[in-house]
Simulated assay, not measured.
Amino acid sequence: MIVRIELTYKTPKGTKTMFTSEEMQAKKALLLAEDLDRTGRLESINFIDNHDNSWNLKELNKQMEEIQTEPHDVTVYFDGGFDLKTRKAGLGCAIYYEQNHKQYRLRKNALVDELETNNEAEYAALNLALQELELLGVHHMQVKFVGDSQVVINQMEEDWPVYEEELTRWADRIEAHMDVLGIDPEYELVSRKQNKEADQLASQALREVEITSTSEVE
């Protein structure tokens, strides 16, 4: 969960000023706020998230306690592959998250048809990951999406325009789904080697090896 701190500081002689911090993880914001509160010079302090929701210190502490019981600190690796001979696409995603102070990994793949290009397969893999996030109960938080498709990453970040009609439909569908879930996406482009887990899942799907698993990780 990402927030910024907005506070009013008061000197011993009564001079006041307001400060707004940079955005940071809520855990860090709480540590800083509690340290500042011990000075006895805070007149007010609030925490604002990316959706302009506001909490005071007590409310944010309670919110963070509740978040611990839900999936959070989520990172998604996704990849799609397309076989020109069979006209089938393999989709793969690996989702890492924390819940109840434990780390988990969810792995999922799927074999689909009715796609036309590798870029569509990449978008479909991202869409598969989003469906799994919904099933996990991930909502109203920042999620990092990691992939090796320059097209998908740059188009979803709106650095590249989307000209192809079919890719526009995928991008619009994914953005609408994220809005419904309240997911604030962060995208990271990596090499295929750095995305090997999702790549392997997509390749296994093309070989008709179905993977669905959730396991605790160290």
Score class of each variant (00 low, 15 high):
Met1Leu: 14
Ile2Phe: 09
Val3Arg: 04
Val3Thr: 13
Arg4Glu: 08
Ile5Gly: 06
Thr8Ala: 15
Pro12Glu: 13
Lys13Pro: 01
Lys16Ala: 11
Lys16Gly: 08
Lys16Ile: 05
Thr17Ala: 13
Thr17Tyr: 14
Phe19Ile: 15
Glu22Leu: 11
Met24Glu: 13
Gln25His: 14
Gln25Ser: 12
Ala26Cys: 12
Lys27Asp: 13
Lys27Arg: 09
Lys28Gln: 08
Lys28Gly: 01
Ala29Met: 10
Leu30Val: 14
Arg38Met: 12
Gly40Cys: 00
Arg41Asp: 01
Leu42Lys: 10
Asn46Gln: 08
Asp52Cys: 01
Asn53Met: 05
Ser54Pro: 01
Asn56Arg: 09
Leu60Asn: 03
Asn61Gln: 12
Asn61Leu: 06
Asn61Trp: 00
Gln63Trp: 07
Met64Tyr: 04
Glu66Gln: 13
Ile67Thr: 09
Thr69Tyr: 14
Thr69Met: 09
Glu70Trp: 11
Asp73Gly: 07
Tyr77Thr: 02
Tyr77Phe: 15
Phe78His: 05
Asp79Tyr: 02
Gly80Met: 02
Gly80Asn: 08
Phe82Asp: 00
Asp83Ser: 15
Asp83Cys: 13
Asp83Leu: 06
Leu84His: 08
Ala89Asp: 03
Gly90Met: 02
Gly90Trp: 08
Tyr97Cys: 01
Asn100Ser: 11
Lys102Cys: 08
Lys102Val: 06
Arg105His: 08
Arg105Ala: 11
Arg105Leu: 15
Lys108Val: 12
Asn109Lys: 07
Ala110Thr: 08
Ala110Gly: 02
Val112Lys: 10
Val112Gly: 04
Asp113Val: 01
Glu114Phe: 11
Asn118Thr: 11
Asn119Phe: 00
Glu122Ser: 09
Glu122Leu: 04
Ala125Cys: 05
Leu130Tyr: 10
Gln131Ile: 14
Gln131Trp: 08
Glu134Thr: 03
Val138Gln: 09
Gln142Glu: 15
Gln142Ser: 15
Lys144Gln: 13
Val146Trp: 03
Gly147Arg: 03
Gly147Thr: 06
Ile153Phe: 13
Trp160Asp: 07
Tyr163Met: 10
Glu165Thr: 02
Thr168Leu: 09
Asp172Arg: 07
Arg173Cys: 02
Glu175His: 14
Ala176Gly: 09
His177Tyr: 01
Asp179Cys: 01
Gly182Met: 10
Ile183Cys: 07
Ile183Gly: 03
Asp184Asn: 09
Tyr187Glu: 00
Glu188Gly: 03
Val190Pro: 00
Asn195Val: 08
Glu197Asp: 12
Ala198Pro: 14
Ala198Tyr: 12
Asp199Tyr: 13
Leu201Tyr: 00
Leu201Gln: 02
Ser203Lys: 11
Gln204Leu: 11
Leu206Ile: 04
Glu208Asn: 14
Val209Tyr: 08
Val209Gln: 13
Ile211Trp: 07
Ile211Asp: 03
Ile211Ser: 13
Thr212Ser: 12
Thr212Pro: 01
Ser213Ile: 03
Thr214His: 09
Thr214Cys: 06
Ser215His: 04
Glu218Val: 14
Glu218Asp: 11
